[in-house]
Design a binder for these strands. Structure first.
Lengths: 339, 339
DNA sequence: CCCGTCGATGTAATCGATTCCACGAGCACC
DNA sequence: GGTGCTCGTGGAATCGATTACATCGACGGG
């Protein structure tokens, strides 16, 4: 592979001049410039990004450590992150933590070793020393979707409070009174928060959220299945299950189906995170939709702001309720899905 | 960020010795080794992968250029690729081409600029000069899922021939005679091949595949919807639509639903690529399942073989039919889904 | 006792870029 | 005509690692 030296030789100039042409520095003669460009062309030269990064201490690369790529919500997030980053001249390296703190750490470490310019994280846990140290040491960093309290890092996320209130109103209107939730891991903000918001919304209708109706999931489908099995085995099973993410809703669907029961007649179902497939499941699933693409883009903008020395602020965007048929038929739709 | 020099100073040795300890070279005294390791610990030193790559001309990184991350099939592929690569000591940088040749080229270019050790590609088109040149120049490369004919690069893919035969047998047994296909782009091997295989299988039952029953899609949901609309508008519409990938099947579902029709009564549906959601759609969708995880792993192994100087061979694995209810009820299942 | 070998270590070149500094030519101004 | 600028250019240092080569001391064999 041709190097800058080869180009310099071919063009009959020094490497300094070649570098100037490539970085369009003003003081290069028109003659030298054309000769260099010709040499670049004939040699098929492309600058070595590794060498450049070593010298400039910039990689123009962002790291994205995501909880679970197989979760469509995060897939979409990753996609929007890459798009916005590309528009701003950055590449993205994605690390999939698979909801495992050790894998998360592995990815943070290799990304840091590669000297990425900034890190976008959706933390799987409360934060390893590695990550906290990196944040403290000033590595540009932004949390997206989930965050770690007490760490001075901008957070870009959706606020589901009002959408969950709308959901509970919807469920109450349909006559449901025994409402259960499949929660995410307590180590994550979204795992805890969604339970609290749900409990609060229930309170507004004079309803309780008993411990038996709080199932502990891990944001993966299998846990949703198990928790739902547990709910169905209760002496007094819930009428509705609210899954704190889309995969656990899928697991809940599996559990209901395995028993030969029907949604919503035997058990109503709602989920946090809206995804395309929810329109086509049997029945279509009522969900709380996050502005996923907007979150990804805002997170990248905040991170790049930090990297380039600007403030870089937290952003919170509202989620909204999308009513479908999984909680009962006779609803007055709060809002129709347009997808 | 501490460099190897700082460690050397802290430990009271030369940088050479530090480097030897880090790469566990045999001739280092036990004393020096412990002093260096202590220094590494106190400084929190991590070697700079950029500098190391420049010197060794290896990045221990693979590039994966994929047609569309939002397609669950490719998401799963990406995931298995990353897993296997990690097990072999490599990182993966994913580039999402979104079925756009220009984006594909963009990613190939930046990956090459970063001097990745090898490239895994699922080409969106017949191959740009850039990619062909890279292959010819000896960049370790492997095609996965799709490939470019006439290029000397190993191919890792699934063979759907026998599964498609099983599918057609299944459809024929259910009494369907007018079978249509939503094809992928002719610029891709899978786009062309699936049509041919389907036509061949129909031939075995004395059935034809008229041009009117070949819809041109682009592997994205929207095209599946449009093509299906077209089919439904025909004077003599097909009884079955076979979508060449899962997203176009989703689009077909949209089209059927928009007209208030039912699957399979008004139109039967089958798809290439099996995904989790197909179990829960209304109705569950009959599909041809690829051994996706195995493909990803095999592709990585072939690529790493090439990188490390071993042969690196093509692999073809069989796909299999998974019968569900989207083509009709009274089937004798060829194979049950276990998902 | 001397020489060859081996083990531990340091010095310095190297990878491919960027960039500071010096230098010479050309030009304008006084 | 000399002085001082600007402009274009090249030499060389630099980024942080790896590694060939040189060096030096200890040790064993003849």
């Amino acid at each position: 592979m041709a190097s800058i030296k080869d180009v310099a030789a071919e063009a009959g100039v020094s490497v300094a001049t070649v570098s100037r042409v490539l970085n369009d520095h003003p003081s290069v003669s028109a003659d030298a410039r054309t000769r260099v460009l010709a040499a670049v062309e004939t040699l098929g030269y492309r600058p070595n990004a590794v060498a450049r990064s070593l010298r400039t201490d910039q990689t123009h690369t962002l790291g994205l450590v995501i909880s679970d790529v197989m979760n469509p919500y995060f897939t979409e997030l990753a996609r929007s992150v890459e798009e916005e980053a590309r528009a701003l001249g950055y590449s993205v390296i994605i690390g999939n933590a698979d909801e495992r703190p050790d894998l998360q750490d592995h990815h943070v470490r290799t990304l840091l070793d590669r000297r990425i310019d900034g890190l976008l994280v959706s933390p799987t846990d409360g934060g390893s020393p590695l990550m906290l140290d990196a944040a403290r040491a000033g590595t540009p960093m932004v949390f997206v979707d989930r965050w770690i309290p007490g760490v001075d890092v901008p957070v870009v996320r959706a606020d589901g409070r009002s959408a969950v209130r709308d959901l509970v109103a919807h469920l109450h209107r349909l006559g449901h009174r025994r409402l259960a939730i499949i929660a995410g891991p307590a180590a994550t903000t979204t795992g805890r928060e969604r339970v609290e918001v749900f409990r609060e919304a229930l309170g507004a209708y004079g309803l309780e959220l008993p411990d038996a109706y709080i199932g502990q999931g891990d944001f993966q489908a299998e846990s949703g299945r198990l928790v739902t099995e547990g709910f169905l085995d209760l002496a007094d099973p819930p009428e509705v299950v609210f899954a704190a993410d889309n995969l656990m809703a899928l697991g809940a669907l599996d559990a209901v189906r395995a028993r030969g029961l029907r949604v919503p007649d035997d058990l109503a179902l709602a989920a946090f995170d809206d995804i395309r497939w929810f329109v086509h499941t049997d029945p279509p699933i009522t969900a709380i939709a996050q502005p996923t693409g907007e979150l990804g883009r805002a997170a990248v903008r905040a991170l790049v702001d930090r990297i380039e020395g600007r403030p870089g602020e937290s952003v919170t965007l509202p989620a909204r309720l999308v009513v479908r048929r999984s909680c009962g038929e006779n609803s007055t739709p709060v809002q129709r899905s347009t997808t």
